[in-house]
Design a protein around this nucleic acid. Structure first.
Lengths: 203, 203
DNA sequence: GAGGTTTTTGCCTGATAGTCTCAAACCTGT
DNA sequence: ACAGGTTTGAGACTATCAGGCAAAAACCTC
């Protein structure tokens, strides 16, 4: 998770989610993209979706302020130029955060965790092409628990989310079978879980 | 879905979602509850959750306006006193609506449809006690397709969402076996689908 | 060529949703 | 009392899917 360290009160020195004020006649999504591009040079989000709007009067001690949070994904191989007060945190070990950003961060982590299971959200985190093992590591980092390579491949292939590029990756120094390279077939979010309960009768 | 007919421009005469302006230092959720109580005498929502915040500059032709939509549920046997310009619409046949309320209504319907499958959201729509057949009708209305009584009962019972009251309902004029009465064990939203994919390995 | 490493495939198990059928429990009319 | 109709409830069966295990495949170094 990309966080930056606040330099001004309130919560000076605490870590906060990147963002900023909404300009007149600006879309919330446009505002998020503008602030990300300006502050941390993140220009290419592979996915962006709205999370929640928070309105508790005491969420900012200085003034009444509403905030709409978004969940944005970037590929794991993207490494944008970051200013000194900005850094990546693993989602499993987030620092104490300013305002209610801790709660927002948890909500975002949970949303991502859920969508990795029933959508093709993985395309937002994976590089353009990847091996199943690489993809397993990305999923494991986002989910916070170990992921079975076998199971991951079988689930994603059966759902038709992946396609082989035909290429193979060179094996590492320790040898091993060269891994086939895959890519996500679609790069926009789609629900893929066939197993919704209480679905309409077949007849 | 509870809609009211606008009397003022813009969209005078069109149907709109109930709501209104946010007061200073007011919570979004508090504002929703206040407007519902004042306008349409709906005081007891069995469930209320935030849907989405819309910010398109042209969503209101008169002024730049943000709107945060909520999804609220009331039991199917609740029949609040409604003013003349307000009425219930079946979610399968919604009228053309003011602003972007049509899109919001679709999002709410879809959210409810999904949550009926993987949560206990049914408690928000069902009466306090009910027969499985009654519950099936409520689910069918919300989902927009037929629902199998057998399957509904088995799924909800296996998940431990329902408990029997011990009472039975008197059979109707046509006879028939008297139905057992059930209630939802919990009346707060909880995720109940045991079937999340890519779950942690058992070992 | 032997032994080690990584990837890929196949087989098996368990859990769950959906369908179908029949039994249970009530009614009315003869 | 009993036959026939109606609604509810329970069991058996099937299909699908996720997860675990193990063997095969394809590379490496020594």
């Amino acid at each position: 998770m990309l966080l930056w360290e606040r330099a001004r009160e309130p919560f000076s020195g605490a870590w906060a989610l990147p963002g900023g004020y909404l300009e007149p006649d600006e879309t919330l999504e446009g505002s998020i993209r503008r602030h990300l591009a300006a502050k941390v040079d993140v220009r290419e989000l592979s996915h962006l979706e709205q999370l929640e709007t928070r309105s508790e009067p005491d969420r900012n001690p200085l003034e009444w302020q509403l905030a709409t949070a978004y969940l944005g994904l970037v590929p794991s191989d993207l490494d944008p130029a970051l200013p000194a007060d900005t850094r990546w945190y693993p989602v499993a070990r987030l620092p104490r955060m300013a305002f209610d950003h801790g709660a927002i961060a948890l909500a975002g982590r949970e949303r991502l965790r859920a969508k990795l299971s029933y959508t093709n959200a993985g395309f937002g985190l994976a590089p353009e092409v990847f091996t199943i093992s690489q993809l397993r590591d990305v999923y494991a980092a986002a989910l916070g628990h170990a992921v079975s390579t076998t199971n991951l491949q079988r689930v994603l292939l059966r759902r038709g989310l992946l396609e082989q590029t035909g290429e193979r990756r060179e094996p590492g120094p320790a040898g091993g079978r060269p891994a086939a390279l895959f890519r996500f077939r679609e790069r926009t979010l789609a629900i893929t879980d066939q197993f919704a309960v209480l679905r309409p009768p077949s007849g």
